[in-house]
């Protein structure tokens, strides 16, 4: 803890902000343009990649993460990590719902008693 006031804070040069701003505008246009073409299965990863770059720019420059102390970074990264755990372990369930253990499936001809959720009833008749 230094005894100085906030004079000691690093003031980010305007050029960083301006360049980031221009880059963000460019990337927004880019992602819209890319979306007009069909890359099949790659559509989502490409869109997410661009979004990730944009997000990192906002995080690093606008939110000043680049000039932050270590712990803030750890905090933010760990929250993303926990988000990753959240999604990964749920997908471990959702993605394997239809499968039955092969050891049981073969000799006894078992199928999972759980109805896969994708075979839900039609909503059109519901309304």
């Amino acid at each position: 803890m230094s005894q100085q006031g906030q004079h000691s804070h690093f003031i980010v040069p305007v050029k960083y902000y301006l360049r980031t701003f221009i880059a963000l505008l460019f990337l927004t246009v880019l992602t819209v343009v890319i979306a007009q073409f069909n890359f099949g299965a790659l559509n989502l990863p490409i869109a997410m990649l661009v979004a990730l770059v944009k997000a990192s720019l906002v995080l690093m420059i606008f939110m000043g993460m680049r000039w932050e102390k270590g712990f803030t970074f750890v905090l933010f990264i760990s929250s993303i990590l926990f988000f990753g755990i959240f999604i990964a372990l749920i997908f471990a369930d959702i993605d394997t719902r239809k499968q039955t253990d092969p050891l049981e499936a073969k000799p006894f001809g078992l199928v999972s008693p759980v109805r896969p959720i994708s075979s839900g009833n039609g909503a059109s008749e519901h309304h």
Binding site: T31, F39, N43, A51
Partner: peptide, 10 residues
């Protein structure tokens, strides 16, 4: 993130 996820599903 919301923008490409909702508006730009190729």
């Amino acid at each position: 993130f919301l923008f490409p996820l909702f508006y730009l599903i190729g």
